[in-house]
Design a protein around this nucleic acid. Structure first.
Lengths: 194, 194, 194, 194
DNA sequence: AATGAATGAGCTTTCATTCAT
DNA sequence: GATGAATGAAAGCTCATTCAT
């Protein structure tokens, strides 16, 4: 039913996501939504949570990998961000729907803000390691982190609006180009144009 | 009435923006929405258009200024992007509401996509000029443009979710830091930390 | 404005006859209806009255003609009933609209019932004269009157529903056929098939 | 609910038949109309259909009776036309309401025109048989049919406008009088005055 | 007298939710 | 637990009427 609700948000938008359409897409009975989730609103929150958990799980697996050096881990993070598991038209559309709801509906906030808490900290830690490794003394790791996080957000926005022409490989190149500008010793040319 | 509708979207979200609430916020009568806009939906489009036009006008004034050199013009673009005229809690919330609608409601798309068409071209032109000026031979102006546009988008997203703690000056620093990494001769340190 | 209202009833039906449509068809301003008629309802009554008066005037002119003998006067009555002045698609449609309203809206009743009062009496008088003239002893003039009046009503109904294929000459033949059956000496064959 | 809608049309006219009044008369909830009929308009069509079917069923039973000779069958037709099952104030009022709608709302036309198709053919067949039986060489069966059908229509109109004083027995006498005039051998005096 | 912007009661319809089965 | 007919609050919209100009 969470999938049906997700599909409904994607197809009809949050405003067009009615109980009837969720029911139609799920093939279940009318009463099911309220029986299992209490209300439509709670089902929508469950959709948000499902997305949030899926996104967090992915990068946490990478973060926990002891075999990767900081630069490779960072690239893995970025690649994961453009992985169809999380970056697909439906889920990104839902993500943006909840983002739009976040201000007027504080209950969804924790789910759509999940990037910010641990994710930013993980990026920051990597960039600080890279900074030390490469002796990039004039680089502010915090600024670089904010830049990278915002860049990823912006690329998701681009994907949301142009999912048909958006190329994940191109997005990756953009990120690597920025990283290369900041940390030239770690992110060499061939990785971008290879 | 456009203002009242905008306020309603901000306060109640797009889903909670009912005719009754628009009426309440405007202080006008029920019939006004349909009298002047034909339908609530058309009023919402008028809100989107108003935002779109306001945003476009601002950067076009800067683009048309012949006295600015490319680097200063670019900085003006970025500063304008964080100007309260366009970057304020209400309007950004509305912006995100329409972004979320864009996929399921193609009519709003032209208004929320306005950044992409002319704006990107203007940025690209500036970066190409800077590239030539500074002989940054290994910089791909297209990649840099995509990066900068995405960065601005991402910072807006950050503002949308954290408008109380977001500092425009910090956002500007992030942008300058990225530009400095790419075009060190043009965007010097003191501008960031000054 | 009465004409515009009549046109609206014809084009859109009584239910679809809104002030806006009357205004559009009249080319006048919104306020005119209330200014000159007090309310839309009163304008509709004026339409009914106009129709009623026009119908009554026509047969009364015939009734007042001293040169016609009873049989010819009766035929004139019938011919007048199928005259485009009263039997035209628009006016008959309006007639039926008000007939439908008559039960739930007693104010229109006098206008759409106008046939019954004087008209029936005039017919009865003619048939009684014809009966005496022709010594049709076994003909009940009252029955014949009711039959003829009902026949005319029924033919109007037929016209209302099939105005494109309805032929007034055929309707006249039907009436003459009935009259001939009742009063064979007065309404000869050749008049029907001539 | 069809009954409630019918009642509403009778009491308030088609214009006054609002969802609220149908609901009030039915004792059911607001949502019922749309739940079961999709829209108020479709419910009204269902009312028209119900009337149409009821009327058609009645005369078709008579038409299918092999025991009746043509003259008796014709009289049965006429009697059926004045039977309270179809000739009652409410249903005739509704009939006229839909007649008035027919021109501007083609969807109702099939239902209110049902008399014309099969009914006329059935009458014509009977009159042709009677004509042959009685050797009424100078009677045009088509004219007679048109006359009779129009007569019945006209008597319904009379009933619609004066249901309290209208006497079905009198209406029957009128019809028999006309038939007797046309086919004297088949429809004798005593049947009228008996 | 004439206008038409403005009004708001009342319309049809939608839809999340309930609850008897 | 599962169902879906039934509910009614609330939605968007229409439209006759008002009234300042």
């Amino acid at each position: 039913m969470i999938q049906a609700a997700a599909e409904a948000i994607y197809k009809y938008g949050i405003r067009g996501t009615t109980s009837a359409r969720i029911q139609e897409l799920s093939g279940l009975s009318q009463g099911m939504v309220n029986l299992h989730f209490g209300s439509k609103e709670k089902l929508l929150l469950a959709v948000a949570e499902e997305l949030s958990v899926r996104y967090a799980e992915q990068w946490k697996v990478i973060a926990a990998n002891p075999e990767l050096n900081p630069a490779d881990k960072l690239i893995s993070f970025i690649e994961a961000d453009f992985d169809p598991l999380v970056l697909n038209a439906r889920d990104v559309a839902i993500w943006f729907s909840f983002r739009a709801e976040a201000l007027s509906n504080p209950k969804v906030f924790p789910f759509i803000d999940s990037r910010d808490k641990g994710f930013r900290a993980a990026i920051l830690e990597l960039l600080e390691q890279i900074k030390v490794e490469g002796q990039y003394d004039d680089v502010d790791a915090n600024l670089a982190t904010d830049a990278l996080v915002a860049l990823l957000e912006g690329l998701w926005t681009d994907y949301h609006l142009h999912s048909e022409i958006f190329k994940p490989s191109e997005a990756l190149r953009i990120c690597l180009f920025v990283l290369q500008s900041m940390f030239p010793k770690h992110f060499s040319n061939q990785k971008i144009y290879g």
